[in-house]
Each structure stands twice: as structure tokens, then as C-alpha cells.
């Protein structure tokens, strides 16, 4: 029983960051229809901002990282995405790839490609043992952050004026514009929200790993994107569930695969994802709007 509980805790610990990343990607996809491959690079920028401001009291460090990321997200929207907003989704995706590479290699130029390390919030990485079950403090925070932020975002989208407009833009941008919704403002709000999610991932990532490279966003984005797909594109709860599911599959396969097959673990994880999508093409939580698009 203890082993099972420990396994579930470990799986949730692995999935926590994926879930948070997936919500950020899912939010932008839901509102703008943009698959933003540069999202992980926002997380990376947040991590390096923490590195540069580590001397400050930690809330100040987090605040600076949040301000920087909001500015970066707005600048990305203004410079890269707004000019091509009416282009096809493929074009938007390619633009996000280009933005991702630009950010990554700018950081290689500034900081080099070698890992940089920082001991940020060391108390968070301490492990707690409760009735023989071990969990890292940072994992608890990841789980709490995922639940709280998913709930807060859902409430924001459901109950606020700008959230209401976001849903309108998401369902029918042309009609939303016709009835007077300022699309640029709504999309900027979505980018700000995704930047706040990104800074949460940055903080928890750096507290957990203490390590960063300019390429750290790449893997997060890929897994976050897979999580949004299996969760159901556009559904925030689905995205979070998708992230935890990838964490669960990774932990299960790490445990269950024989030693010879462990180097190929990712093939099994993504194979399982494909299988799941064959059985449930719309993802775990399929939205009505998404169904119409299909």
C-alpha cells in the first residue's frame, strides 16, 4: 500500500511541471488558436531572470521575473504574432518556432550553452516524510499551484468581463470583433496570463533542479504540448490532467520496463499517447468548440 501511495506521489511529482506548462500552452491555444512553441523559452527566460536577480529577497526576485516575462510575452505578441494574426495556423506555428530559436540562441550568445546553476529557495527542495511516504516540498507546491492556477484561470475566464471576451474570441473571432470586442486587448490579456503561468513554472523548475540551460524550454514545450493534445486542446482542466498523465506514464514505465528497454522509455510513453488518441481523438476532455473545428 505504501509503495502504491509512494508511486502515485512520485508520478504526480513528475507530472506537476508538465501540467503547469500544458495549461500555459493550452490557454494561448484556446484563445488565439496559436500553438506557441516559444512558450518553454518564456520559462527559460524566467529561469535566467531568477539567476540574475538571486541576490534579492526571493519575493522581489519572483516579482522581477514576472514583470520581465509579462513584457517578453507582450513583446512576442506585438512583434511576432500580431503581424501574422490572420495567417494560417501553420504560419503562426512556424513563427513560434522562429521565435523559439531566436530566444534560445540569443541566450546562448549571452550566457553560453553550459548549464548555469543557482541554489534558489533551498527550503522548497527539502523532502518531507509523512507516515513513511516521501515527497519533496517543491512537488507539493507544484500540485497546489496546478490546482489553484487551473481554478483561478477557469474562474477568470468564466466570471470576468475580459474572460467572457476571451471565450467569445475563442469561439468566433470575427463575430467577437463585430460586436465590439477589442481582440488585441483580449489576446494581450491571454499572453499576460500565460506569462504568469510561465513564471510559476520558472520558479518551481529552478527550485526543483537548481539548473538551467538556454535549451531547457524545448523538452518542456514538447511534453507540455503533448499534454495539451491528450488532455483536449483548449480545455484547461484537460491540459492539467494531460500533464499529470504524461508524468504517470513516465513513472510507470520507468518502474515497469526491463533494464534493456529503459533507454527506449520515451518511445513507449509517446506510443501510449498515440494509442490513447486513437481511442479518444478529442483528448480526455473534448470541448464543443473543438469538436466543431474537427
Amino acid at each position: 500500500m505504501d509503495l502504491l501511495v509512494q508511486f502515485i506521489i512520485d508520478a504526480v511529482s513528475v507530472g506537476g511541471l508538465y501540467a503547469l506548462t500544458a495549461i500555459g500552452i493550452g490557454l494561448i491555444f484556446g484563445v488565439v488558436g496559436l500553438v506557441n512553441f516559444a512558450y518553454g523559452d518564456f520559462v527559460m527566460i524566467g529561469a535566467y531572470t531568477i539567476l540574475l536577480t538571486i541576490g534579492f529577497y526571493w519575493p522581489v526576485t519572483i516579482l522581477i521575473a514576472a514583470i520581465v516575462l509579462i513584457m517578453v510575452a507582450l513583446a512576442a505578441d506585438f512583434v511576432a504574432f500580431r503581424p501574422v494574426r490572420l495567417a494560417s495556423p501553420e504560419t503562426l506555428m512556424i513563427v513560434s518556432f522562429a521565435l523559439s530559436y531566436t530566444i534560445q540562441y540569443s541566450y546562448v550568445m549571452m550566457f553560453g550553452s553550459l548549464a548555469r546553476t543557482v541554489n534558489f529557495l533551498p527550503a522548497m527542495s527539502t523532502n518531507l516524510e509523512i507516515l513513511g511516504i516521501r515527497i519533496a516540498g517543491v512537488s507539493i507546491l507544484q500540485i497546489v499551484a496546478t490546482i489553484v492556477l487551473t481554478g483561478a484561470l477557469a474562474a477568470f475566464i468564466r466570471f470576468t468581463r475580459i474572460g467572457y471576451q476571451m471565450r467569445a474570441v475563442s469561439e468566433n473571432p470575427t463575430m467577437a470583433r463585430l460586436v465590439g470586442v477589442d481582440i488585441n486587448k483580449v489576446i494581450a490579456a491571454a499572453f499576460i496570463a500565460s506569462a504568469l503561468l510561465a513564471v510559476t513554472v520558472s520558479v518551481l523548475f529552478v527550485a526543483q533542479t537548481g539548473t538551467m540551460t538556454p535549451f531547457l524550454g524545448l523538452n518542456l514545450t514538447i511534453i507540455g504540448f503533448v499534454a495539451t493534445v491528450i488532455g483536449g486542446m483548449g480545455s484547461l482542466v484537460g491540459c492539467a490532467l494531460g500533464g499529470f498523465l504524461v508524468g504517470f506514464l513516465t513513472t510507470l514505465l520507468q518502474l515497469a520496463l526491463p533494464a534493456d528497454l529503459q533507454p527506449f522509455r520515451e518511445a513507449f510513453v509517446f506510443g501510449a499517447v498515440v494509442l490513447m488518441l486513437l481511442l479518444r481523438p478529442g483528448g480526455l476532455i473534448m470541448l464543443a468548440t473543438a469538436r466543431e473545428r474537427i
Binding site: 509512494q6 508511486f7 506521489i9 512520485d10 508520478a11 511529482s13 513528475v14 506537476g16 511541471l17 516521501r134 519533496a136 512537488s139 523548475f205 526543483q208 533542479t209 523538452n219 518542456l220 511534453i223 508524468g247 513516465t250 513513472t251 520507468q254 518502474l255 533494464a259 529503459q262 533507454p263 522509455r265 520515451e266
Partner: peptide, 21 residues
């Protein structure tokens, strides 16, 4: 005992630590 992880993909090795400890 023996275990593996993927240095490029894994941000958390919680499961491996539970077996290692």
C-alpha cells in the same frame, strides 16, 4: 540495485529516488 533516467528529458527523478533510498 540499478536504475536509469534520461538526462535530457527528465526534470524530476522522484520515482528513481524512491527506489534508491
Amino acid at each position: 540495485g540499478e536504475d536509469t533516467w534520461n538526462g535530457i528529458n527528465d526534470t524530476s527523478i522522484a520515482g528513481q529516488i524512491s527506489r534508491m533510498k
